[in-house]
């Protein structure tokens, strides 16, 4: 029994240490990112590449998912509200679902799928091949050079893609309205109802649920990638850990923000 308790205790301490370390990375990353002197040319260049690879290249896929998701959300809301005879809440419900939940949540998963493994593999490979040591030998701060642009880049990507997702999914919902409302109306009543029901808190929720998981994802992938010691056989394990922990962080942040919003 003491042995089991010891194991549980050690596990909890390790988990708490890991969370503390990640929070420290997050704070340090944010502090550094607001200093203009941090953004020397190679960091700006790295940030641009990160946004290109993780964000711009994911735009077509995000548009496709957003179109399908927007249509599905509209249909589900329309049929259930029609069933309960509350169709007047259609715009409000679609807006709440898309702004508060679906857009940031799905986009974070798209970015995790597209970039978490790439970032972790790149950093872990740099570590095992001695490139991280090379940077240190040249007096370059590896946190500043490797982690900060990735953290900020992924946060910008998730926020940008969330906005694109939102735009496309609202258009898809409006198309659903034209096709299924049965009264031959244009999209205006639906769009007015959607935008009228959006409050400032919805925008804050969207930004919070996009930026914080993006930052966490960057911190987790950098942490796991740079933690690799020794041989390249450890790289796949680091990638797997980074993806699972990024998903956990996304779910936790989304839940926490949702609780704060509704309570």
């Amino acid at each position: 029994m003491p042995h089991l308790l010891g194991k549980i205790g050690n596990g909890c301490i390790a988990k708490a240490r890991s969370i503390f370390y990640l929070s420290t990375m997050l704070c340090a990353g944010l502090t550094l990112s607001v200093k203009p002197s941090t953004w020397v040319f190679p960091l700006r260049n790295r940030l641009a590449r990160q946004i290109l690879f993780a964000g711009v290249q994911a735009v077509p896929f995000t548009i496709m998912v957003a179109a399908l998701a927007g249509g599905m959300v509209y249909l589900q809301c329309f049929f259930w509200l029609q069933y309960t005879d509350k169709v007047e809440f259609l715009g409000r419900m679609v807006a709440a679902l898309l702004f508060r939940e679906l857009a940031p949540f799905l986009v974070t998963f798209i970015v995790i799928g597209a970039s978490a493994s790439a970032v972790t593999t790149e950093l872990a490979t740099m570590k095992t091949t001695g490139e991280v040591t090379l940077l240190e030998a040249q007096g370059i701060d590896i946190f500043n050079f490797l982690a900060v642009p990735r953290m900020i880049g992924l946060a910008v990507c998730v926020l940008g893609l969330s906005c694109i997702f939102l735009f496309v999914s609202i258009i898809a919902s409006a198309l659903g309205f034209i096709l299924f409302n049965g009264e031959g109306q244009g999209p205006q009543p639906f769009l007015i109802s959607v935008f009228d029901s959006v409050r400032i808190s919805d925008w804050i929720t969207l930004i919070t649920k996009s930026v914080i998981p993006g930052l966490f994802m960057g911190a987790i992938c950098s942490y796991e990638g740079l933690k690799v010691e020794g041989t390249s056989t450890e790289v796949p394990q680091a990638v797997s850990r980074a993806i699972l922990r990024s998903i956990s962080a996304t779910v936790l942040v989304s839940t926490a923000v949702m609780l704060i919003t509704y309570l």
């Binding site: 740099m126 490139e131 090379l134 240190e136 007096g139 701060d141």
Partner: peptide
């Protein structure tokens, strides 16, 4: 750590071939 990095920026180094990485491959 910051002093160490600042000091290393005042050192020029030619890295040994096969002694570890001398270049960032990306």
């Amino acid at each position: 750590p910051q002093e160490v990095l600042a000091s290393r920026r005042e050192i020029g180094r030619v890295f040994a071939p096969r002694g570890g990485a001398a270049w960032l491959q990306n």
